[in-house]
């Protein structure tokens, strides 16, 4: 039997980023991820939640606990209605930032997850989907 339990959290303030991390932590431990894998997905979620807040002007995080016959894990979908990312490849490259960050968040998150997808459109917004499987 396969189930997906999900919860949607708003990302509007810095405190919401903390809440996203806590939600991901709960889901990841329920999914039975190892401590290292939990830390990886939580850290990636922290990066993307902050990007959603800082560059997307706020949005939502949908945290899914996936329990399917073939795989168990956590999937998180970040969505915003911000400006979008004009050049995804450039944004993914280490050190690129339009803010005052290290420019490592996007690329780093990709390396921390098993699945990573960016859908973005100029002026419409950005959706980033990540997953970590057991």
């Amino acid at each position: 039997m396969s189930t997906v339990t999900s919860e949607v959290l708003a990302i509007r303030t810095g405190d919401d980023v903390v809440r996203v991390r806590q939600g991901v932590r709960t889901a990841a431990s329920k999914a039975g991820l190892s401590l290292v894998d939990q830390t990886k997905i939580i850290t990636a979620a922290s990066e993307l939640a902050r990007n959603t807040l800082d560059y997307g002007g706020g949005g939502t995080a949908r945290i899914e606990l996936v329990q399917e016959p073939m795989r168990r894990g956590v999937r998180i979908i970040f969505e915003d209605q911000g400006p979008g990312i004009p050049d995804v490849e450039q944004a993914l490259s280490d050190g690129f930032t339009t803010g005052r960050g290290l420019g490592l968040g996007l690329g780093g998150s990709k390396r921390l997850c098993n699945e990573f997808r960016i859908e973005t459109e100029a002026g419409k917004g950005t959706r980033v989907t990540i997953a970590r499987w057991r």
Partner: peptide, 13 residues
Amino acid sequence: RPQIAQTMVHLGV
């Protein structure tokens, strides 16, 4: 901690 060290390496920090 070990898990944090590993994560930092992947992040590139």
